[in-house]
Nucleic acid binder design. Structure first.
Length: 281
DNA sequence: ATGAACGTTAAA
DNA sequence: TTTAACGTTCAT
């Protein structure tokens, strides 16, 4: 109180650190841990921005070589494949692959399937029929190569707003909307889709359900909003000052999504076009 | 309505 | 086990 400087200008918000800018313009070592100052921006999955092509990358090749993406399309390319042994049945193989992929995917996604991942999985599982016909791919540019439908959306992973979900902006949602549940945190595979794909037994389903229904699950930062992108604590806000007892993240770093009520998050179930979203068929 | 404190969860 | 931070409760 004495030196009343309660983070003074709130509009300057994200700029409280202008004083921190001294830290900011330093080569940003941003690796301060110890009592409080975080440097780690996001959870692993968010740090490692994935391009949609990374998801699909495993798709075409996955059919030829079993090793899917043990690390998201890493430069693990030239791996001597044990000359694909007597293939079991296609379905068995895909199932196995799906199994692993799903597992890995789930690891980083809180048990929820991200849209692109879900799409890739469905396709790999031979569930293309679940996608809308016509191969109306992203903006319709992707003609022949049905394998890289998602490729065209790689821009999407530049995160943020509509760009984050280009599907349908230009020509229409390329996938059957009933299959996905859209939330500000992402687009996820719906229950019905899981059943159709024979993935219903996966925890995804129940996790998603419980997350939505009970709102119990601890939410995570979106990693895209301005505050989330911020990496330095202001050290002046109440949260920073009371870190010991408050257990709260710096006010300037508080995710916009998390500021909203969990319920509010589910309200944004609209397609970018403004059209109401069909949850189920 | 806002903020502080505490309990708890999740990740390292 | 430690640390970061979300969710909840309580005080103002």
């Amino acid at each position: 109180m004495s030196s009343g400087r309660p983070e003074g200008s709130r509009e300057r918000t994200a700029e409280a650190p202008e004083r921190n800018s001294c830290r900011d313009d330093v080569p940003v070592v941003e690796r301060r841990n110890r009592s409080g100052i975080i440097s780690e921006p996001l959870s692993k999955s968010l740090k490692r921005s994935r391009t949609l092509s990374q998801y699909t990358a495993a798709c075409p090749s996955a059919n030829t070589n079993g090793h899917t993406h043990h690390g998201e399309a890493k430069s693990h390319s030239a791996k001597p494949q044990p000359a694909t042994p007597p293939q079991p049945t296609v379905s068995a193989l895909t199932a196995a692959k799906l199994d692993r992929t799903l597992e890995q995917v789930l690891e980083g996604q809180n048990g929820l399937l991200h849209f692109a991942q879900a799409a890739a999985l469905l396709k790999r599982a031979g569930m293309e029929h679940m996608l809308l016909p016509g191969g109306m791919g992203m903006g319709g540019s992707d003609s022949g190569s049905g394998t890289s439908d998602l490729e065209g959306a790689s821009a999407a992973d530049s995160v943020g707003g509509v760009a984050d979900f280009p599907y349908g902006v230009g020509g229409g949602f390329p996938f059957n909307p009933g299959l996905f549940i859209m939330t500000p945190a992402g687009v996820f595979l719906a229950d019905s889709a899981l059943h159709m794909a024979g993935l219903a037994e996966y925890p995804v389903q129940s996790e998603l359900a419980s997350a939505i229904n009970s709102g119990k699950k601890k939410r995570k930062r979106c990693g895209m909003c301005q505050p989330c992108r911020r990496r330095i604590n202001c050290e002046t806000c109440s949260s920073c000052r009371n870190r010991k007892t408050g257990h709260q993240i710096c006010k300037f770093r508080k995710c916009e999504e998390l500021k909203k009520k969990p319920s509010a998050a589910l309200e944004k179930v609209m397609l970018p076009t403004g059209a109401a979203f069909r949850w189920f068929q």
